[in-house]
Design a protein around this nucleic acid. Structure first.
Length: 657
DNA sequence: GAGTTTGAAACT
DNA sequence: CAGTTTCAAACTC
């Protein structure tokens, strides 16, 4: 509004002056004076570009650092939004209409430029700012690299707007209005700033776009979003920054992605629909999604109407963003995969979620007892003795614990205790079962040498159970014993310490011999479950959530779904992923990827290779290719194949629907 | 459901 | 790091 007036005035002014003074010199001067700004403008643009490339101090300060580093925690997101908002708001405030218009105008130009630079022309089609750069996002992961950058974002704009259109515009403006240009410039600059500094904004938007796409968003978004109703503001705000983090880290990205979309576009829809329709309202919270998931799945199942929400809310302890992410990712992935593949994989969800021993127990006990949980009496549920606590979940009604402090009410205590425990043992809450590839990286080759690809983190110490009962964590986790184990008389059906085959017939026979008919039968089931669990776990741990979950889903689908579900002992822990642990895994995964040359293939392969002892190289470094495994063990072959298939499909997951 | 067994977690 | 104690799950009856 102001700008037009100003421009008019300015334009007129020179004329009036010229009339008054008539002297050509004055005219020139006057004319020049207005021109100056115009000329200056181009410079400023460049300047701005430069400045923007390196996030301007003003803008930068707010979003910048925190976003990346804190990406894990949703909380982090909060700060970010503020910066962006103010920037955008400022223009809007001054000229709400103009600001919007300016953005709209800018974007198109930007799009064009972006398209050229970004290489994605189609993006331009999308009118929304978010869409433009983000459109690139489809790239999703790769986007990170591309988007990365601040530099990128800023320059394009400058070039685009300023060089071609921008200059022209300004030129035109000069003729018409000078001031308006400034306003635009400011607005543009603000936008630039926003985009550039956070870069993520683009990525974020990409994510948003992908997720947001009406078709997709709902399913995926739902879980995260729902809680959003409560957290909406946060999520929405956080999203952008989250996006950044997301870009950098797959897991978080997705989380962020999911969040993001919900926030912006579908938030309203999703929120309502999600929360309302899907019972699941996962608390945005932070962590302990596993439980939430578990709870949600089970409890929800038991009580359809029920509030997953309550469950999730109750149960999830905001321990770690990463973990939460995983969980969310799982849910989302599941939903997505379902949608995509149309295969009814209901069991999958359960299975996935059931990873924790508790769940197993629950299942074993019967679904009626679905909520059965810990029974702590002296630990106050603040020690790893407590399965709930160990799983990062709050205790709930079904728990028969006494003097329980593992409740939302005592969140502070829980977190503090958790921290303490983590300080003592950073991996205390990490999944107990780790896939061999990871182990290889971590421990060296030993682990890999052992029969199963997945291994217990620390190894068991069984002396009387022969690693044939759930007393044994390895057995419970469905993984074979490894060199790390100090067990005596190991007869682990999934793989002996000495390296015997995992689920070999021999092992089964031995088990059979040892166990009575009933027990045997139960065991076989158990084993199968454990087996599946183990796979899931092993895969899940290191791999990015998406890939893992995908694999799991595929496996589950293909593999005859065990009656109940695979309870992943490790899964519980997996839910707990520590940030550190997650980092490690990520790092490892990256390494593996580098080796293999494929991003997620390595992980998958490793997972697939679980069964093959032989597959593992003597060094234990790399696992043999999946096909070998398939040939080796008939049972799993299906799973492996599936896994392989899953890999390719993986990428598609995000965007679809 | 009570009691026993077991091995991890915690402590020293 | 090793030994001991504590703890709660797993198991048995």
């Amino acid at each position: 509004m102001d700008t037009p007036q100003k421009s008019i005035t300015q334009i007129e002014t020179p004329v009036s002056k010229s009339r008054v003074e008539d002297s050509p010199v004055f005219n020139y001067i006057n004319s020049l004076s207005p021109i100056r700004p115009v000329k200056s403008i181009p410079n400023p643009h460049q300047f701005s570009a430069l400045n923007f490339t390196s996030p301007p101090s003003v803008f930068t300060s707010p979003h910048l650092t925190s976003s990346h580093k804190e990406s894990r925690f949703f909380k982090t997101h909060h700060p970010s939004p503020d910066p962006t908002i103010p920037v955008q708001e400022s223009p809007d405030d001054s000229t709400s209409n103009e600001g919007a218009a300016a953005e709209a105008e800018v974007t198109p130009n930007f799009n064009i430029d972006a398209s050229t630079e970004m290489e994605q022309p189609h993006i331009a089609k999308e009118t929304n700012l978010d869409d433009l750069p983000l459109a690139v996002s489809p790239c999703g992961r790769e986007t990170t690299g591309d988007l990365s950058l601040v530099p990128y974002a800023s320059p394009p704009r400058e070039e685009n707007g300023e060089d071609d259109t921008g200059m022209e515009m300004y030129g035109n403006v000069q003729g018409k209005n000078e001031t308006p240009d400034w306003d635009r410039l400011i607005a543009d600059s603000s936008e630039f700033l926003i985009f550039s500094s956070p870069n993520d904004s683009e990525a974020f938007r990409c994510l948003m776009m992908q997720r947001a796409s009406p078709s997709q968003a709902p399913s995926v978004m739902m879980p995260t979003m729902q809680p959003g109703s409560i957290n909406e503001p946060e999520s929405s705000i956080a999203s952008p920054y989250g996006a950044v983090s997301v870009l950098h880290r797959g897991i978080r990205r997705r989380c962020l992605d999911f969040e993001m979309p919900g926030n912006k576009q579908t938030s309203s829809e999703n929120n309502t629909s999600a929360c309302g329709s899907s019972s699941r309202c996962v608390v945005p919270s932070i962590g302990l999604h596993l439980n939430a998931l578990l709870m949600s799945t089970k409890d929800c199942k038991t009580n359809n109407t029920t509030h997953d929400y309550s469950c999730s809310e109750k149960y999830q302890v905001g321990l770690q963003g990463s973990s939460s992410t995983l969980q969310e990712t799982l849910d989302q992935t599941e939903t997505e995969t379902r949608d995509l593949e149309d295969v009814p994989v209901e069991p999958t969800l359960e299975e996935l979620h059931l990873s924790s021993p508790k769940k197993k127990r629950q299942l074993e006990a019967g679904e009626g007892e679905s909520c059965k949980r810990c029974n702590c009496k002296k630990s106050k549920c603040l020690k790893l003795y407590c399965e709930c606590f160990a799983a990062g979940v709050y205790c709930i009604e079904p728990c028969s614990c006494i003097d329980c402090f593992n409740k939302p009410i005592h969140e502070d205590t829980v977190l503090a205790t958790r921290k303490q425990i983590e300080s003592r043992n950073p991996l205390a809450f990490a999944p107990k079962v780790i896939k061999s590839s990871d182990l290889v990286l971590e421990t060296g080759d030993d682990a890999s040498k052992t029969p199963a690809s997945a291994r217990h983190k620390r190894g068991c110490n069984c002396k009387k159970s022969n690693c044939l009962k759930k007393y044994c964590e390895c057995f419970q986790g469905g993984v074979g014993c490894s060199i790390n184990c100090r067990c005596e008389g190991c007869k682990n059906a999934f793989g002996r310490k000495d390296g015997s085959a995992i689920v070999d017939m021999e092992a089964e026979q031995e088990e059979e011999n040892e166990t009575s008919g009933k027990n045997r039968r139960a065991k076989t089931q158990e084993n199968s479950e454990v087996y599946l669990m183990r796979k899931e776990e092993s895969s899940a741990l290191p791999a990015t959530p998406m890939s893992v979950y995908r694999q799991q889903l595929v496996q589950l689908k293909n593999m005859m779904p065990p009656p109940q579900s695979v309870l992943g002992v490790g899964s519980s822990s997996s839910g707990m992923f520590n940030s550190q642990y997650t980092r490690k895994l990520e790092m490892k995964s990256l390494e593996t990827v580098a080796e293999d040359g494929a991003e997620e293939m390595p992980e998958i392969l490793s997972h697939s290779s679980i069964d093959n002892v032989n597959a593992v190289s003597p060094n234990g470094k790399r696992v043999s290719p999946p096909h070998l495994d398939s040939s080796s063990s008939g049972r799993r072959s299906g799973g492996r194949k599936l896994i392989l298939q899953s890999i390719p499909t993986f990428p598609s997951l995000t965007p679809q629907h």
